[in-house]
């Protein structure tokens, strides 16, 4: 046994050398970096990280800051709406595409192309389309409906929905593709059985197909949710967080405090809160995914 150990260590050397980048990334950057940020969120670092613990001060200040609360509310509103709409729209589109239609490739190409574009491009285009003078509002007014008002870029109450429209335009294509892959994985016999039993199509979708597609839905939700929490570029490009602070997002708060406001402690605390909100989604998912596998 005494000689067994070192031999274990030196076996398979090239493979271990080849995996060094992965090991370093996983342990130093992902694990180490995350723990470092969490640890320093309990300090009062300003311009440079300083190890002077102040307990939960940063978090208290964070939750007393109006801008953070607005950011978090925005994330919540945007997140829920974006999840619901992109799942519903994505699934309906996929169901339509699955009806053995012609030109399927053309439709898919059109609906998916925004996904190839960056959030910066997306945000700038929608900023222009939603321009109150020349864009949608101007056109409807030009048609004679003078009191029509839709100006998400200037009205703080609906500003977040302007972002939502752009985000949905960019992201639903991906959901559709994933859902379509899921639908194609459903056994044709299920449909035949439903038809024989005389069950209407919408009922088959709702009560048979969707429950069967649970894994696809879960993966999609996790993917969308991870993307939502990160949302940054779109807001920067489309509104810059405005009007006022109406479309601020946590990711932007973190960036502004870390790299603009030179208040590192706040940035660390805010990013730790972001991590927490991801874990709220991630842990139940991991539990379902891996707990489920053990049972089978």
């Amino acid at each position: 046994m005494a000689t067994g150990r070192p031999r274990q260590l030196f076996r398979n050397i090239p493979s271990k050398i080849a995996a060094i980048p992965m090991i370093l990334t996983a342990s130093v950057v992902f694990l180490g970096g995350t723990l470092w940020t969490i640890a320093y969120s309990f300090t009062n670092s300003k311009l440079l990280p300083r190890w002077k613990l102040v307990g939960l001060d940063q978090y208290e200040r964070l939750w007393a800051t109006k801008r953070w609360i607005v950011s978090f509310e925005n994330l919540f509103i945007y997140g829920v709406c974006s999840l619901v709409f992109s799942l519903v729209i994505g699934f309906v589109l996929a169901a339509l595409m699955d009806q053995k239609i012609r030109f399927e490739n053309t439709f898919r190409t059109i609906i998916l192309y925004p996904f190839a574009l960056s959030f910066i491009v997306t945000g700038l285009v929608w900023q222009w389309i939603l321009n109150p003078d020349f864009g949608l509002q101007g056109i409807v007014r030009g048609l004679g409906w003078d009191s029509f008002s839709f100006d998400p870029l200037y009205n703080p109450d609906i500003a977040i929905f302007g972002i939502l429209i752009a985000g949905l335009w960019q992201g639903t294509g991906l959901v559709m593709v994933l859902m379509l892959a899921g639908l194609r994985g459903i056994d044709e016999d299920i449909w035949k059985a439903a038809r024989v039993d005389g069950i209407p199509m919408w009922k088959t979708y709702l009560f048979v197909v969707i429950p069967m597609m649970r894994p696809v839905f879960i993966t999609t939700i996790v993917l969308i949710a991870a993307g939502i929490v990160r949302l940054y570029d779109l807001v920067v490009a489309q509104t810059g967080g405005g009007p006022g602070i109406a479309t601020e997002m946590p990711a932007k708060y973190v960036y502004d405090y870390m790299f603009g406001g030179q208040n590192l402690g706040q940035g660390f605390a805010a990013s730790t809160m972001m991590l927490l909100s991801v874990l709220v989604v991630l842990i139940p998912w991991a539990y379902l995914e891996f707990g489920g596998k053990k049972r089978v």
Partner: peptide, 23 residues
Amino acid sequence: FFSVLIFGAFIPYQVMLYPIVIM
């Protein structure tokens, strides 16, 4: 390490931004 790597894909970048600046 592979599991940590995959798990890391879901962690918000914001948590790792500053440590990477230091590195």
